[in-house]
Write a protein that binds this DNA or RNA. Structure first.
Lengths: 247, 247
DNA sequence: TAGTGGTCTAGACCACACG
DNA sequence: GTGTGGTCTAGACCACTAC
C-alpha cells in the first residue's frame, strides 16, 4: 500500500473521517480481505502524517460499524462481512418493502384527530383523552394487502399530518421533511388469530394467524413521536432483526 | 457537586471508566435528571484533575450507552431514560425468562450428533450432511410449557454439548464457560398455526397460533455458532426488541 | 465575547503477545 | 526485546451558541 497523499489536512472534512472512509472503501472492495491485519495505529499515523490519536479515531469508528476488530497486543483485523449489512433495523413499511423489491401503496381508512386511549396516551407521554392524529391504513405491497396499520401521534406537534396525502408516502418520509429525526423504537411482536374485520381487509381466512406488532418510536431527543399498531398477514410477512449481545 | 476525590489515578481501573461509572450512577439515581446539562468537558477535567480528552472518553461512552447527548456549542445533556434499559437484546431463553421473574427448566427431547440439513448447513457455514449437535428441548417457565426449541451447532467445534446436562443450564452459559463469546444474531420471527406434534407438547389447542423464531448466532470473530428454531406459545409469549435508526 | 463541543498534536507509560 | 493496542497528558485551533 503506497503512502499516496489522499488525506487532505486542509479540507473541511475531518482527517479521521477521510481516513475512515478510505479504509472502509478498501475493506468493501476486498483489498483488505477478512482476517487481514491492517497497519498498526502508529503505522497509519506515520503514513498519513497525522497523530496516532487521529488514526485511532478512524479505526474506532470502523470498529463500531463492525468492519474491524482490535486484539490487544496483536493488532487490528478486518472482520468477516456481516450477513445483512449494518443495523438498519428501524425502517418504515415503505422502506422495508423497497428492500424486498416491492412497490407499496396504501388505502387510507381513517385520518383524523381523535382522543388518545389510555394505552396510546401512556406510550406517547400524554394525558388520556389528549388529541392525537390517528392514521389507519391498509398497506399493499405489489397490490397485495400486507397489513393494517394504525399510527398515533400527538396532535400538538403533528396535526399537519391530517392534511397530507398518505396513500403513497411513507410516514417517516413526511416526518423527515419536517425535521423530525427518528432515533430508536421499542417494538413488540406477537402472534394472534386474526379478527373478523382485519381478515376481510387482508383477504385471509378467519382463524388464520397474524403477526401483530406494536411500536413506539422516539426522536433523537428521546421524545416519543409515534405509536403504531399493525396486523400483518402471517403468510406473507416475517419480521427480521439483528440482535446484539450486551458486552 | 463537590470535587470529592473519588477518582483514583493510581487504581488499576482506567480513570475514564471510573468517571463514566460515577456519572452513570448519578444519572440513574436521578441526581442528574433528564434534560440537565452536565458540567462541560473542561469543567470535568479540572474538577477531577484529569485531562480533557480523558473526561471526554467517559462522556463518549455514556453517549454510546444512551445516557447523554452532545449539542455542539451548548453542552452535554442527560437523555430521558429509555423505557427498556439498554440494548440487552440478544438473550437466551433462560436469561429472557429470568428478567421476567420466571424460573426455567427444560425437558430434553433430543441431544445427539446428526447430519446437517441443507438449511442448517447453510446457516452454520457447513457442507450439507456435516455432523452437527442437535439439541431439542421443551422449555418451561414456572413449570408451564413455553416453547419447543431445536438448536444446531457444528459438531467439529461443539461436540462436548452432547455430554452436558441441558435440563437446567442455559446453552449460552455453557458456551460462555468454554470461552465462546457471542456477539450478535440474525433472527426471523413469524406467525404460524401450530403443528400437531408441538400442540400436544405445548398444551395448546390445534389451530392455535404460535410464534416461530429462527436465529443464527455469531461469535466475536464473526463465525456462526448456533442455529436455533423455536415455536413459542402465542398466548404466553411476545417478542420485544429495541430498534435503532440508521444514521 | 465567553463558553461549548469537535478535532488534532506529539509525545508518554502500561500490559500483553510473540519470537 | 520489539510491536501492539489501551490509556493519558497538556496543550491547541475551529465552528457554533448565547448573550
Amino acid at each position: 500500500m503506497a503512502a499516496s497523499a489522499i488525506v487532505d489536512k486542509l479540507a473541511p472534512t475531518p482527517i479521521y473521517v477521510q481516513l475512515r472512509d478510505l479504509l472502509r472503501a478498501q475493506i468493501e472492495r476486498s483489498e483488505l480481505p477478512p482476517g487481514t491485519r491492517i497497519p498498526s495505529e502508529r503505522d497509519l499515523a506515520e503514513r498519513w502524517g497525522i497523530s496516532r490519536m487521529t488514526a485511532r479515531a478512524a479505526v474506532t469508528q470502523l470498529i463500531d460499524e463492525g468492519y474491524l476488530r482490535r486484539v490487544p497486543g496483536k493488532g487490528t483485523f478486518v472482520q468477516r462481512p456481516r450477513v445483512l449489512q449494518s443495523l438498519q433495523t428501524l425502517t418504515s413499511f415503505t422502506e422495508d418493502m423497497r428492500t424486498r423489491g416491492k412497490a407499496t401503496r396504501a388505502r387510507v381508512l381513517e385520518q383524523v384527530i381523535a382522543e388518545a386511549a389510555p394505552v396510546v396516551a401512556a406510550r406517547l407521554g400524554l394525558e388520556p383523552g389528549a388529541p392525537v392524529v390517528k392514521l389507519r391504513r391498509l398497506r399493499l405491497a405489489d397490490e397485495e394487502p400486507m397489513c393494517v396499520e394504525t399510527a398515533y401521534l400527538a396532535a400538538s406537534r403533528f396535526s399537519f399530518l391530517v392534511k397530507e396525502d398518505m396513500t403513497r408516502q411513507s410516514l417517516y418520509a413526511v416526518l423527515g421533511r419536517r425535521g423530525v429525526e427518528l432515533a430508536w423504537a421499542d417494538q413488540r411482536v406477537e402472534a394472534l388469530r386474526v379478527r373478523a374485520g382485519e381478515a376481510a381487509m387482508l383477504g385471509i381466512p378467519r382463524q388464520a394467524p397474524v403477526l401483530r406488532t406494536e411500536r413506539t418510536t422516539y426522536d433523537r431527543e428521546g421524545r416519543p413521536v409515534e405509536h403504531i399498531q399493525s396486523f400483518y398477514r402471517a403468510d406473507r410477512y416475517t419480521f427480521n432483526v439483528r440482535l446484539f449481545r450486551r458486552r
